[in-house]
Amino acid sequence: MTRVSEHLNRALHDLLAADPGVHLLGEDITDPYGGAFKVTRGLSGRFGDRVRSTPLSEGAVVGVGAGLALAGRKAIVEIMFADFATLAFDQLVNFAAASTSMYGRPVPIPLVVRCPSGGNRGYGPTHSQSPQKHFLGVPGLHVFELSPFHDAGRLLETMLALGRPCLLFEDKVLYTRRMYEDGVVDELFRYEVTGGVARVFLEGAAEPDCTLVVHGGMAHRALAAMRDLLLEEDVVCELLVPSQLYPLPDLPGLERAGHVCVVEDGSEGGGWGAEVARVLHPRLWSTLRRPITLVASAPSVIPAAPHLEREVLVQPGHIRHAIMEALS
């Protein structure tokens, strides 16, 4: 059994070993600390100067990463909490993303900005957010998310090969979960990954009553809802988890879905779900029986106290309720 954080740590080790042009920057990422979530453990001892702990300067550190990339290297920057990625907004939007095309020809900027995101850990309003939505729709900027289905090494390689700046969101609770292996989720569900999209399905089931589309950090809560819906409501769900959130890749099999529900951890309003629906509605208009259901966290700050935090962030019960309401 491999925990997601260990899996990612191993992927970083392999990447830095395989490619001497890769640099890693971030706050407190060197040993013995090894990063706030221990994802970079063991890297500084092994790769020396290519792994640098930085001052508390998110904006400039992302700029340094872009400079390394401009000079022909590859850079991975860790932002300790995704909430702080707002401090790097100018570097990401006006420099890294814009530079890939504003000079009239493709300028490669192989830069990955890793952002531990999400709540359910009681960290409070400025350490729990899922700010993916603020980075959608920026020309030249790609948004990815870690999942328990996607191989992190392949994901890192894919992002760096794009030659465009990428944000990689990594759910902090997901770090503690195990990676799924060999196509098996549990005794009910199986999974396969094709074209960067993980599809979780009930073996032997025909057309699903509902297909859920979620980002990686929402996978376990979606799975819990799917299990309850199956066992208690006799509703068959399928789950799609794309590793690339923006631009949205092709999502397979939706034409045969009875209903589509997009779930995101970000706060309601102007979110990823709306972007997914924008892409899917024209494509599925002739087969959809009802509007796509969007589930998001409450339009609220995220409280620190666990009982209050649970009320704000999407829980399995919210998903189940939204789907039952839509199907009724």
């Binding site: 300067s57 904006g59 400039a60 550190v61 992302v62 700029g63 340094v64 990463g65 872009a66 400079g67 390394l68 990339a69 401009l70 000079a71 022909g72 290297r73 850079a75 100018d90 570097q91 006006n94 420099f95």
Partner: peptide
């Protein structure tokens, strides 16, 4: 954008 290039410049200077 004013000041934006300085961090990028530091990145290139590192190499």
């Amino acid at each position: 954008v004013q000041g934006e290039s300085l961090p990028v410049a530091v990145g290139t200077a590192l190499t």
